[in-house]
Design a protein around this nucleic acid. Sequence first.
RNA 1: CGCGGGGUAGAGCAGUCGGUAGCUCAUCGGGCUCAUAACCCGAAGGUCGUGAGGUUCAAGUCCCACCCCCGCAA
Length: 307
Amino acid sequence: MKVVFMGTPDFAVPCLETLTQSRHKVIAVVTQPDRPRNRGQVTFCPVKERALELGIPVLQYEKVSREGVDDIRALNPDVIVTAAFGQMLSCEFLEIAPYGVINVHASLLPKYRGSSPIQWAVINGETETGITIMKTAYKMDSGDIITQKEVAIGEDETAGELFEKLSRAGAPELVKALDLLEDGKATFTPQDESKATYFPMLKKEDGEVDFSLPAHDVVCRIRGFNPWPSAFTSAGGKRIKIFKAAVVEGKGKPGEVIAAERDGITVACGDNAVKITELQPENGKKMSARDYLAGHKITVGTVFGNV
RNA sequence: CGCGGGGUAGAGCAGUCGGUAGCUCAUCGGGCUCAUAACCCGAAGGUCGUGAGGUUCAAGUCCCACCCCCGCAA
């Protein structure tokens, strides 16, 4: 089938690549516009970069449903595929291709609808999530399911690691779904609305660690926010990002440092404590707690958070 | 021209008023210990991001240019 592929971040890249190696043909790629980057070199989004390498034409629109309809209709695609594209699509847009729009979603729908399903699954301490390939309906992530694949979440897995796993798992599922569609063997299973859950997009400020929560919850949040937007707290007026931590025994006022040793900085939580093993100081690079302590004086009794 | 911080031993940092550098950890050697990631003693390791740039008797420290890294904001 002739496919128009729409996606933006790293997550979508394996889908695009696998698609180009399948029997289907990607005739164009649509991504979000290049955002102005002030610091460092301006780079295209991962999908655009890969598409250019593969020699596939790239289209970019602020609102594809408004500005891109005619262009895409003119390409005469059999199906349009989206993977972490990042824009809502209009009803008109959904009708452009005969097979409509097929979406790759990183959760087992109807659970975890919304734009940050991977992080939320980790934050909530889930042990399993997955990939859903569905036909896109107008209402966010509510379309009929074509295929699903479960993926286990490791106990210490970060959202970033899970991202990669799901991204790799999603690519073959997508091809499978397109094959089924083309062969007329696809089934469309409606979602059970009563079981639907929705989680909003993660915001940067949501990453502030609340040490009054139980240690387990704190760790899940730290895992879920790693690597983006990253969990953080503050000490001495400086912001510190926290990337890795584990639950340990300990008691103290929430946020209080109860140990600062080579293997980690232990901070008391609402219940038990967390040992921080990887962090990043303001203006610094990500480093182990051990390296951090070599040059920063963190003493027992220091309180993190609430500046 | 969005705001700001930084590039000093392998790593993380300090270096006050300009006078050729210091701390913690790691490394190597030795010691102590039943033992140890612990402790004690000692050693090695740096042309201080780049420019045979500017100011100066003298620059890590001040000025200029460039490169790279990072935080915030988008």
